[in-house]
Design a protein around this nucleic acid. Structure first.
Length: 444
RNA sequence: GGUGGGAUGGCCGAGUUGGUCUAUGGCGCCCGACUUGAAAUCGGGUAAACCCCAUAAGGGUUUCGUGGGUUCGAAUCCCACUCCCACCGCCA
């Protein structure tokens, strides 16, 4: 959400922001509506003022005068009701447009229309070379009996999978390693609600706009369940959404709260399953574990004071935390600056980390590091009180620290051996009982 | 799932025959007085969002769980919903 006085004062700036972020919103029209809304609001308030004043006088009046006043007020009441109704109509339109307003990207953000125009900033690591014909993670997973996609599809439909045996253990190992690393750095770990209400989805700026990517719980089940109207209504009001990232729950954790400046920054780590419908991606990344409906992620969430220097520093910090994990795993990666068209309404700056995936013969996105300034905080109502007593909205940031099974793609593919086994990355062995290799299970 | 109780300002809590309620009172917090300093005491002040206005001074509206209704007027009456607490039942 944007401070509207800024939009009123700088309409061109926001129109440009819409254009470069691919948001279809006519700022001039929005401001005209905003003007209309305020005019009407003033009218309504004037009528309310009169009603309040006269109503207060009524008990002191008697007889004819009282009758006349009440009659007069009745007429005013009808006029007021009509005005309030048209205000409510305008309000809805105004609100939905207001939620479209983008934040202003930093000057350093490359201008571009989609991920093709993201800019590589730097690379780390040496790309693997194989003295044999390397297999992709799907083949490796089948041969080692650690990934079972066909049975996942049988149970839950396309883009579903089972991790099995050492595959499941490897996932837990990499997650636990990441969690330990963040905890050592002073992060507070959360296992948050996996279901969130509309306010949390809206507050973190996934809604409106991202509804089709979220699984809704307790909605539209009336026909199949044969519910009574009353029960159906109850379920409708029960509506929750499966989170696509723990950012939704963890960033909303302090919604409506006000901190003392000294309590900031908050360094939070959310560990959760994540659910994504992946609507509109039919056929894209169809093979393997790259794009699936359910995964596990350790996410960093930061709340800090509203100072661009402070949030820039923390952005670098949480980016580095993710790089530390990849470096410990010895996985080559690159950092890109995400361009305006690929960065979303609320972010002012965003980096992706892309990890080398041999089967893709390229880097694939594994992390996403965003700075929002006060965009989310305004929607969530998270403030802090400065030393001078001023109340301001906090800045929020977040970054993936690890997401699995996507990270298993480079691990399996880079650590594979000629004989089809996979070496367990050194730092993960202690989480797998010291195991050094994943081999074909006995009896296969 | 059943029965009962409840939701009021940062916290506790009064107000429910609709109108001097401008939401009593207390606690906490802030400022001041007294004091060498502190405590105690005394005095004053203590919500948010939004609108008008010159980014002043000032004025106004809304908010007593949420939404709707009745009324000239609603914390107070009516309807629906949400959430919390207690006990019973069921349950990983």
């Amino acid at each position: 959400m944007i401070d509207l006085t800024l939009v009123r004062e700088n309409p061109d700036l926001y129109q440009t922001a819409c254009r470069i972020k691919n948001i279809k919103l006519d700022i001039k029209k929005f401001l005209a509506l905003d003007e209309e809304r305020r005019t009407l609001m003033t009218d309504v308030q004037k009528m309310q003022t009169e009603r309040n004043a006269v109503s207060k006088k009524v008990p002191t009046l008697k007889g004819v005068e009282k009758e006349a006043t009440i009659k007069e007020m009745k007429a005013l009441g009808e006029k007021l009701k009509k005005a309030e109704e048209s205000l409510a109509t305008i309000d809805r339109d105004w609100m939905s447009q207001q939620l479209q307003l983008p934040s202003i990207a930093l000057k350093t953000v490359p201008i571009g229309k989609d991920d093709m125009e993201n800019v590589e900033l730097r690379k780390w690591g040496t790309l693997p070379s194989f003295a044999f014909d390397p297999k992709d993670h799907v083949t490796l997973g089948e041969m080692l009996d650690i990934i079972d996609i066909p049975r996942g599809v049988k149970i839950a439909g396309s883009r579903s999978y089972f991790l099995k045996g050492d595959g499941a253990r490897l996932e837990l190992a990499v997650l636990q390693f990441t969690i330990d690393s963040l905890v050592k750095k002073g992060f507070t770990l959360f296992t948050p609600p996996l279901m969130a209400n509309y306010a949390a989805m809206m507050g973190t700026s996934y809604f409106p706009g991202g509804e089709e990517q979220a699984y809704a719980v307790g909605v539209d089940r009336t026909p199949e369940m044969g519910l009574s109207e009353k029960d159906a209504k109850q379920i409708e009001s029960d509506k929750h959404y499966l989170i696509g990232t723990s950012e939704v729950s963890v960033a909303s954790y302090h919604s409506g709260e006000t901190f003392k400046a000294a309590e900031l920054p908050k360094r939070y780590a959310g560990f959760s399953n994540c659910f994504r419908r992946e609507a509109g991606t039919y056929g894209k990344d169809a093979r393997g574990l790259y794009r699936i409906h359910q995964f596990q992620k350790v996410e960093q969430v930061i709340l800090c004071e509203a100072d661009p220097d402070v949030s820039a520093k923390l952005h670098a910090e949480i980016l580095q935390n993710a790089e530390d994990i990849l470096q410990a795993l010895k996985l080559p990666y690159r950092i890109v600056a995400v361009c305006t068209g690929d960065m979303g309404r609320g972010q002012v700056y965003k980096n992706d980390i892309e990890t080398w995936m041999p089967s893709r013969k390229g880097y694939g996105e594994t992390h996403s590091c965003s700075t929002f300034y006060d965009f989310q905080a305004r929607r969530l109502g998270i403030k802090y009180e400065t030393a001078t007593g001023e109340k301001k909205f906090v800045h929020t940031l977040n970054n993936t620290c690890i997401a699995s099974p996507r990270i298993l793609i480079p691990i399996l593919e880079i650590y594979q051996n000629k004989d089809g086994t996979v070496t367990v990355p050194e730092v993960l062995r202690m989480y797998m009982g010291g195991q050094e290799k994943i081999e074909v299970p006995k009896g296969m």
